[in-house]
Amino acid sequence: MILTTVLGFILIILGIWGMLTQKNLFKMVIGFSILDSGIHLVIVSLGYIKDKTAPIIDSDILANNASSQVVDPIPSALVLTAIVIGLAVTALMLTYIIQLVNTHNFDSKNMKDPLSITSYEELKW
């Protein structure tokens, strides 16, 4: 369906916008997670075929020609694994945030928000 593909691209753009403009570390990770959802939506909507059912065969579908009645199952299978990997990568990013906060030296300068990316100037050049 072309509408959901457009929606997925809009989500991707919004996610990238959030990742680039936000200062808060958590909101950057949220931008990544929205970008992830958008990519999943695009991939699944590419496999949609109008007026066909889900790729789960029962006796009714089996009686006729099965391959002419179901939507494309390959994008579903790919997205299934991508969602789980997305969760693992998000959790790893959050762990880095916790370690950044944990190792941050609070006394060095005038106390800024420790969850803001502008407080971390060690790698700035």
Binding site: M1, L7, V44, L80, I83, L87
Partner: peptide, 18 residues
């Protein structure tokens, strides 16, 4: 939207994980 796109497996995964 995944349910509307007739992909129930992905919809379950996204609802539980995402």
């Amino acid at each position: 939207i995944f349910i509307i796109l007739s992909a129930p497996d992905v919809a379950m995964t996204e609802a539980s994980i995402g």
